[in-house]
Computed example of a mutant assay.
Amino acid sequence: MSKAAKSGAGKGGREDQDGGEPADSGKTQRGIQSVEVGGRVLLALAQARAPLALSDLAASAQLAPGQAHAYLVSLSRLGLIKRDELSGRYEPGPLSLRLGLMHLENQPAFRAAVPRVAALAEAIGFSVAICIAGPQGPTIVRYEHAGFPLHVNLHVGTVMSLPATSTGRVFCAYLPRATLDGMWANQSGAADSAMTPAGEHAAFGAALAEIRARGLACSVDVPSPGISSLSVPVLDAASRLCLALTVIGSTGAIDVAADGPTAQALLATARDIGAELAATPSLLASSTS
């Protein structure tokens, strides 16, 4: 037996014959401490939910600023973190975003939605966005372009206003209060709005009740003049919000009537996605885990 083979079969190094986990995987395994410290830096940034200065990031990761800077250099080279040249603050880098999107693409509701949303956009001739609950609010994670270009800058990563958009109001209508409170607190300008979750205006509360009754929200010329939208929730078998689908078009060109063909096509697509999740228990379990 070669030295390499003997070493691999030695204590703490033997693997199962099928190439799986080491035979002593029940024991605490040795890791790379510097990698774990770098993970603390990434975790601190993720928990902050906003770009951080070096001093703040170091404090959150419980590191000295000089030590944190060394890790940031390496993490930046890997693309896991990037530094904004104007503010000097650190934020997630392109590799982090790619990993996040890869995780998203493995989520059952998203996988079920993508082909149906593409078909919907082609059928109705209007752009359709898939939105999920992000830390800052409803966030576009897929945008199917259709029809004429719009004078609004919507793209993957755009965060939608909770009170001012049809998408945001769908999330307000269906999300648990604890989740919604966190989003509301993170949206800039939310403190200036009278329609906060802790004390919603009666009119806003009534609007949310109507959305739940119809399963549909509508915006006309708000928040962007000349742009209108319809948004619907995708619910699982337990009536939990998985994501929202939003159709966007030019005011006057898009029919935003609740009983109109665009709304009905949007609602049917959401029902189809929900039905696929409900029909496959394993998908439902993983989508809500």
Rank of each mutant, 00 (worst) to 15 (best):
D181K: 08
L72D: 06
G157M: 06
A278I: 01
S166D: 06
T196P: 07
V234M: 03
V114E: 09
V37F: 00
A61D: 09
S60E: 13
A278L: 01
S166M: 04
A109G: 12
L208G: 07
K82H: 10
G12F: 00
V170D: 02
A23W: 15
E144G: 08
T280A: 05
M183L: 10
D259T: 14
S166T: 07
G147K: 04
G168T: 05
Q264W: 05
G168V: 03
I254G: 00
G79K: 02
A121G: 07
S289W: 01
V128H: 01
R77M: 09
E91I: 08
M195K: 14
S239M: 12
G38H: 03
R271E: 10
G205N: 13
L54R: 07
T251P: 04
L284Q: 15
T251G: 02
Q29N: 09
A121R: 05
D221F: 00
A268H: 11
L52T: 09
N186H: 14
A207H: 11
Q17H: 13
A5K: 12
V128L: 02
S25R: 12
P51Q: 04
A112C: 14
M183T: 08
S55Q: 11
V141W: 00
R49Q: 15
V41K: 02
A190I: 06
N106R: 15
F110P: 01
K11F: 09
L283N: 11
V73K: 13
A213C: 10
E91K: 10
G10W: 03
S289Q: 10
L267N: 05
Y71G: 03
H69P: 05
Q136V: 10
R83C: 10
T262C: 12
T269A: 11
L101E: 15
D221M: 00
S25I: 12
I130V: 15
C172W: 05
F126G: 03
A5I: 15
A285I: 12
L99H: 02
H201M: 09
S74C: 08
H155S: 13
L216Y: 02
L241K: 02
P176M: 06
A59W: 00
